[in-house]
């Protein structure tokens, strides 16, 4: 497929990029920011998007790389998925990011696609948005007016829409370190290895003395934005982890209350319907997968 014609702008600096975006907005031009292009290019090629211009940030200096900043890890927006995966800071301090990133598409995509691009694209079927909401990441946006912090819970507005303002560029994300006692798991359900998640569950669980002290659960592809499974999180608090049934029935064994709690994982969600799953099946999967993710994270 061949995209419709568009103008191509490659600003030399972040400031210039911000100005270009602001001017485009002021003149009513529909511009799209492109970095790795792994999500946007297919939309262009299928002629599902017709931007007047692409603003290519791919080679801007200073937006690429991972830094350990004490209480959080800062991931520059242009850091590729592959670089995220190879980052010792990510693997050591925010392993949930690595677990989810490892499931993104395939190696070719992970070498071009960027961390920030994937989040700013705001596809609820993407793997990273659910992680961002589960970990309460903080998004840093820059515009001609300066920098602004956006909590993950406020970043995703709707399907493929964020609360970034016209003229704002996502420059990086603060991923909080959760500290000792936390375990993590990303449970992704797909029909083929390279496909988008039908449902994904990003779980962070803190256990204390054999009980769940705190659980954070982010859901992929269970609505028009990534969601937190708040009801399940609440229900899990304080439950003993002793009765893991691993799905296997052992006669006489007490059933696992964690499973009951995870039964609330889809509450409040309005999952999409497509060729791979209808909403009730997605809701079912969210419950099953949440149990598996929580069990894996809390073990």
């Amino acid at each position: 497929m061949i995209p419709a014609a568009f103008d191509y702008i490659r600003p030399a600096s972040l400031d210039e990029a911000c100005h270009v975006l602001r001017d485009a907005d002021a003149s009513g031009n529909d511009v799209k920011v492109i970095a790795g292009g792994q999500s946007l290019l297919p939309l262009l090629r299928l002629r599902l998007a017709y931007p007047a211009a692409l603003v290519d940030l791919g080679r801007l200096p200073g937006l690429r790389g991972v830094e350990d900043r004490g209480d959080h890890v800062f991931i520059g927006a242009l850091t590729t998925h592959d670089e995220v995966l190879r980052s010792p800071a990510v693997r050591e301090h925010v392993p949930l990011v690595a677990l989810a990133t490892a499931t993104v598409a395939d190696p070719a995509v992970r070498h071009r696609g960027t961390f920030g691009g994937s989040l700013a694209h705001a596809d609820p079927a993407g793997d990273l948005p659910a992680v961002a909401v589960a970990l309460d990441c903080v998004f840093i946006a820059r515009s001609a007016e300066g920098e602004r912090e956006i909590p993950a819970a406020e970043f995703f507005a709707d399907y493929l829409e964020t609360t970034l303002r016209p003229g704002e560029v996502l420059i990086g994300v603060r991923v909080p370190k959760l500290g000792a006692g936390w375990g993590f798991h990303y449970e992704k359900f797909t029909r083929t290895a390279q496909a988008w998640a039908i449902v994904g569950v990003a779980a962070a669980v803190r256990t204390e003395d054999g009980s769940i002290a705190e659980a954070r659960i982010g859901l992929t592809n269970m609505g028009s934005t990534p969601l937190r499974a708040r009801a399940a999180e609440e229900a899990l608090r304080g439950l003993s982890t002793a009765h893991g049934d691993s799905g296997v029935t052992i006669p006489g064994r007490v059933h696992d209350p964690v499973r009951d709690a995870c039964g609330q994982a889809a509450e409040g969600a309005s999952p999409p319907s497509d060729l791979h799953a209808r909403p009730d099946y997605r809701a079912h999967l969210a419950r099953v997968l949440t149990y598996r993710a929580v069990r894996a994270a809390g073990s």
Partner: peptide, 15 residues
């Protein structure tokens, strides 16, 4: 019959 003893399925296995 053995599966009848499988407890704790909760709502999630309702179907």
């Amino acid at each position: 019959p053995a599966a009848a003893g499988w407890g704790g399925a909760g709502e999630s296995e309702g179907g």
